[in-house]
C-alpha cells in the first residue's frame, strides 16, 4: 500500500477516522484487588493492563535503596497472543527492554520520588492486545494505575502518538499506519505545564515536519488528559459519596 492511501482524498484514514481524530478511549481503575493500584485502558483495539505495587521496602538487597528518593521499577511485557503474529516470548526481547526503559525514565520524572525515600515503586505493564501506539497506551495505563494507587505525582503523564502522511499530521496511529516506515513518533507530556517528558522517534521524519507532528501529538495528549481527569473526578466523587453515607 503506498503512502497516499493512508489518508483518502475525502480526508478519511484506513479505519474511517479523520486525520486528527483519536480512537475511542475507555478505562477502568482498581480492576485487581491484589495490587495497590491497577488500571485497564483500551484505546481502539489496543488494550493494556497496568498494576502498581508500592511504595514498599526495596526488594532484592538493600544496595539498590536510595537514601533520599524512591526506586522506580518498571516492567513492560506483551501477551504472546497480543500481536497478529504470535510472539515467541512475552518479555526480554529488545523492544520490551526499550519500552521498560522509556517507562522508567518517564515515571522517574513524574513521580514525586522525594516523598518516598528508601522505598520502591513497581509499575508492571501488560499488553493484552496490540494495535499500534503501544508505548503511549502503556504510559497512559501506568499513569492511571499510579493515580489509583495514590502515589504522589507531579501531574498526569499523558501520551499520544502522531505521524505524517502527505504533509498531514495523523493522531493516534493504529498498527497499519505504524508499520509504514518512517512516520511515527510518541510524545508524553505533563499537561498542566505542557512540559514534554518523553519523545520517542524510532523512525525518520523530515525536519520540516517534526515540530508540526509534535504539536499535533501534544493536542492529542491534552484530549487524553481531559478524558482521564473527568474519569478520575467522577470516580473520586463516587468514592467520597460512599464515605459520607457510612458516616
Amino acid at each position: 500500500m503506498s503512502g497516499h492511501q493512508y489518508l483518502s482524498e475525502e480526508g478519511f484514514r484506513v479505519d474511517g477516522r479523520r486525520a486528527q481524530e483519536m480512537r475511542k478511549l475507555d478505562c477502568s481503575l482498581g480492576v485487581f484487588a491484589q495490587a495497590d493500584g491497577s488500571a485497564y485502558v483500551k484505546e481502539g483495539n489496543t488494550v493494556v493492563l497496568a498494576a502498581v505495587y508500592g511504595p514498599h521496602e526495596v526488594r532484592g538487597g538493600r544496595v539498590k535503596a536510595l537514601h533520599d528518593r524512591a526506586v522506580v521499577n518498571c516492567q513492560f511485557s506483551a501477551a504472546t497472543f497480543s500481536t497478529a503474529e504470535r510472539k515467541r516470548r512475552p518479555r526480554g526481547d529488545t523492544k520490551s527492554v526499550e519500552m521498560t526503559l522509556h517507562l522508567q525514565q518517564t515515571f522517574e520524572t513524574a513521580i514525586l520520588t522525594k516523598l518516598y525515600p528508601r522505598c520502591q515503586i513497581d509499575i508492571f505493564v501488560e499488553v493484552l492486545q496490540a494495535d499500534g501506539s503501544i508505548l503511549s497506551v502503556a504510559i497512559n495505563a501506568a499513569t492511571m494505575a499510579l493515580v489509583d494507587a495514590g502515589i504522589g505525582l507531579r501531574d498526569y503523564v499523558c501520551a499520544c502518538s502522531a505521524g505524517v502522511f502527505n504533509d498531514a499530521a495523523l493522531l493516534d496511529l493504529n498498527n497499519l499506519e505504524e508499520s509504514q516506515k518512517g512516520t511515527g513518533l510518541t510524545v508524553a507530556i505533563l499537561p498542566k505545564t505542557e512540559r514534554i517528558v518523553l519523545v520517542d522517534m524510532s523512525s525518520k521524519i523530515h525536519s520540516d515536519h517534526v515540530s508540526k507532528t509534535i504539536e499535533a501529538a501534544i493536542e492529542g495528549c491534552k484530549d487524553i488528559h481531559a478524558t482521564f481527569d473527568a474519569k478520575i473526578k467522577e470516580r473520586v466523587g463516587r468514592l467520597a459519596a460512599l464515605i459520607n453515607t457510612e458516616n
Partner: peptide
Amino acid sequence: DLTANADPEFEGT
C-alpha cells in the same frame, strides 16, 4: 505466562 500483575515475585523470569 505468570504476569507480574499477579505477584511481583513473577517479575522477569
